[in-house]
Simulated assay, not measured.
Amino acid sequence: MSFEGFPVAALDFYDDLEIDNTKSFWTAHKQTYDEAVRAPMEALTAALEKEFGPAKIFRPYRDVRFAKDKTPYKTHQGAFVAAGPATGWYVEIGAPGVRVAGGFYHAEADALARIRAAMDDDRTGPQVLRIVRRLERAGFERAGDRLKTSPRGYAADHPRIDLLRHRSLSLSRSYGFEPVIHTGELLERVRADWKALRPYVDWVTDRTR
């Protein structure tokens, strides 16, 4: 199956799911999910696999065992291509439209320590700062869990303190409801974005392997 974009029905499905997040709604509309959401996502990630690697398409079911929110279904469909531990490329469709991202989404204590040490280093730190700033100038937005204060051992006036505060750090671009998301051209947009994100993904992966 070739990728021809996500149909309008995919956005409508998630709009309705946010209002009626129940098993009865899901059962009645599962065919829409399969045809308008799951199948296009499989086609999109399959087309990118040769260049970036196989994707994990996440299950649509939420883990509610320890959550206060007991709604059973995720209100978006994501897919992730791993380059390293919790590090790689991401694409998502949901009620807000399509979003593309890359970076690290979690780091164990030892991996985070290595990332921060590399950010602190006067050789590798300026390198990643240039990469991040270049991506931001290209329209990517920085996101991730971050400390409100400086991490232990790093001065508040460190030249890269904004990076050092992050416990996870990704860069993303939203296509929202742009007409392109309903066409095959979205494949080339995602490919171009993931290629642009590769220097950052590679930089992190080299520190977390």
Results as ranks from 00 to 15, higher is better:
residue 111 A to N: 14
residue 111 A to K: 15
residue 111 A to Q: 14
residue 111 A to L: 05
residue 112 L to V: 11
residue 112 L to Q: 12
residue 112 L to G: 12
residue 112 L to P: 15
residue 112 L to S: 10
residue 113 A to L: 08
residue 113 A to T: 15
residue 113 A to P: 15
residue 114 R to E: 10
residue 115 I to D: 03
residue 115 I to C: 00
residue 116 R to A: 06
residue 116 R to N: 11
residue 116 R to V: 12
residue 117 A to S: 10
residue 117 A to D: 11
residue 118 A to C: 05
residue 118 A to W: 04
residue 118 A to F: 03
residue 118 A to Y: 04
residue 120 D to G: 08
residue 120 D to L: 03
residue 120 D to R: 10
residue 120 D to T: 13
residue 122 D to C: 03
residue 122 D to K: 14
residue 123 R to L: 07
residue 123 R to K: 12
residue 124 T to E: 06
residue 124 T to R: 10
residue 125 G to W: 03
residue 126 P to H: 02
residue 126 P to T: 02
residue 126 P to I: 02
residue 126 P to M: 02
residue 127 Q to E: 08
residue 127 Q to A: 06
residue 128 V to L: 00
residue 128 V to G: 02
residue 128 V to Q: 00
residue 130 R to L: 01
residue 130 R to F: 02
residue 130 R to A: 03
residue 131 I to V: 10
residue 131 I to A: 03
residue 132 V to I: 10
residue 132 V to C: 05
residue 133 R to I: 01
residue 133 R to Y: 01
residue 133 R to W: 01
residue 134 R to G: 14
residue 134 R to I: 00
residue 134 R to C: 01
residue 135 L to V: 13
residue 135 L to S: 12
residue 135 L to D: 13
residue 135 L to A: 11
residue 137 R to Q: 14
residue 137 R to N: 12
residue 137 R to I: 09
residue 138 A to C: 04
residue 138 A to D: 15
residue 139 G to C: 03
residue 139 G to A: 03
residue 139 G to H: 04
residue 139 G to E: 03
residue 140 F to K: 07
residue 140 F to W: 01
residue 140 F to G: 09
residue 141 E to Y: 06
residue 141 E to I: 12
residue 142 R to Q: 13
residue 142 R to M: 09
residue 143 A to N: 14
residue 143 A to L: 06
residue 143 A to D: 15
residue 143 A to C: 06
residue 144 G to R: 06
residue 145 D to N: 15
residue 145 D to P: 13
residue 145 D to G: 09
residue 146 R to L: 06
residue 146 R to W: 01
residue 147 L to V: 13
residue 149 T to G: 14
residue 149 T to F: 08
residue 149 T to I: 09
residue 149 T to L: 05
residue 149 T to Y: 10
residue 151 P to H: 08
residue 151 P to G: 11
residue 153 G to A: 07
residue 153 G to T: 13
residue 153 G to N: 11
residue 154 Y to K: 11
residue 154 Y to R: 09
residue 155 A to V: 07
residue 155 A to H: 08
residue 155 A to I: 06
residue 156 A to M: 05
residue 156 A to Y: 02
residue 156 A to T: 15
residue 157 D to Y: 07
residue 157 D to A: 13
residue 157 D to C: 08
residue 157 D to W: 09
residue 158 H to R: 03
residue 158 H to F: 00
residue 159 P to C: 06
residue 159 P to K: 09
residue 160 R to W: 04
residue 160 R to M: 07
residue 160 R to L: 03
residue 160 R to T: 07
residue 161 I to S: 04
residue 162 D to V: 06
residue 162 D to E: 15
residue 162 D to T: 14
residue 163 L to F: 00
residue 163 L to H: 01
residue 163 L to W: 00
residue 163 L to T: 05
